[in-house]
Structures are given as structure tokens and as C-alpha cells.
Amino acid sequence: MATIQAAPAASRATIREASRPLWRNPSLLMGATLLAIVAGLAIFAPLLTPYGPIDQDLLNAHKPPSWAHPFGTDNFGRDVLTRVLYGARIDLMIGLVPTAITFVTGVLLGAIAGYYGGKIDTILMRVVDVAVAFPFIVLLIAIIAMLGPGLRNMFIAIALVGWISYARIVRGEVLVARNAEYVLAAKTLGFGDARIIFGHVLPNVITPAIVFFMSDAVLNILLGTALSFLGLGPQAPTAEWGRMIQEGRQFIVSGEWWMTTIPGLAILVVGVAFSLIGDGLADLLRVEERV
């Protein structure tokens, strides 16, 4: 009796799980709240602090945390809290912009390769093999070395290489899906390839790529701030967390911990927020996370 009912019962359960209310998914809820707070702080930064992110006040340089400067000031007397708040604007972008670009290109390339197979697929997979032979960050550094440092070139560098993970994930899924009955049915109905890929294949295979999006956002914010820490990202005097850590680094010897510790914690908070959202999404969409 139970065995006969198994199939429909299972699909009902999945739907019920998927439409489970948000508060039953603590990871997603916590992550989204955290991210919303950071975004709010970034947007309303001018209202929250009396200082500007690049306003120097050399008389108040190197000041430890106080009421006037809760996170202290840096070597130019700039308020660390203010810089962290304004920095969130750039760092949220570092987390999300390149990730969004590579998501779109990677999913498209992966879908095309998986759907058509043959030469296109072979070439794409060769490119992937070569790209993963380089350490990701080394390739980014090399590209930025050629293009010149800066936020825009950093985004270009990540966009040039970061699509690979998505392409791999989606290609694998499409390879399986392209022989599925719904695809064959669509073909018999005479639908065009584009319609089949976008209308039928992608909606069925995109979940793992969506789940990967969040781990990729964590990866990109870590990479982006690291590049920035190495001086390859936004240039001075821009308020950006990786750069702030770079600038504050020489002062740890004199015990001025706040210049480095605080921006690092900010990165950590955003990273955790993305991770929690990712875990929550994986749970929500019932997909095993792939590395």
C-alpha cells in the first residue's frame, strides 16, 4: 500500500517543504536579516555618521575607540566606523556584481555546451580544464597586472574567469536533462532550441547554480578584498574594507588594532550572511551543495 503511493506522496512532500514558511528556515532568515542590516547601514551611512569617509582630521589621527569615534580613527584621522559603513557600499558590490555577471554567462555557456554537446562542448570543457589549472587568484592577479588595478578591472578579471564553476554545474545538469522526456516532448512539438533551453531545460536544472551563487558570493568577496588588500582593487582614498586593512596593517605593531580588526569583522559578517543564505537556499531548494 505504502509502495504504491510512494511517488505522488514524495512529490507532495517536496512541494510542501519548498513552500515552507520563511521562519521555519532559520539559516535563510538570519542570513537575509544580516544582509539587510548591512545593506541598510551602507545606504543610510550619511545619516548615521557625522563624518565623511575621506574626511581627514590629522589632529585626531591614531585615536583608539571612543564615544566620538566608536571604532577609532586611522592614521589620517578618518573615522573608522564611517569608512566601514561607506565601505559596505563597495564591498557588497564586490560580493554581488561579479557573481551576478558570472552567474549569467556561466549558466548560458554551460547550458549551450550541455544541450548541443559535440564540438562546442569539447571546446568549452577544454577551456575549463585549462582555467582550473591556474590558481584562481593568480589568474586574477595576472589579468589585473595587465589591465591595471582598480575596481572595474577587478570585476573584469573575475568576470573573465569566474563563469567556469557555473558552466560546469549547469552543463552537467543539462547533459542529464537533455534526454529527459519533457525535452523530447518539446522537441517533438517543434519548439526552437532557444525556447527549449530557456523554457524547459534551464528552469529544471538551475537550482544547483542558484545555490552555488551564494558560496560564490562569499568566495568573491574574499577574493575581492584580498586583491584590494594587495593594492590591486580600488585605490586610495576609497573606503573599502580590504584596502583599509592594508592601510592599517603597519600600525598593529603600535597596538592600533582597530584599523584592521574592524573592517575584517565587517567582511566576516557579510561572508556569514551570504553563507547562511546559501545554506538556507540549499535547504529550501533541497539541493546538495556541490564543491
Partner: peptide
Amino acid sequence: LLTLAMPSFW
């Protein structure tokens, strides 16, 4: 989870 979200240079 925390470690994965920490920048290594930090």
C-alpha cells in the same frame, strides 16, 4: 562556517 567567511589575510 565562520572560518570560510574570514579573509585569510585578516
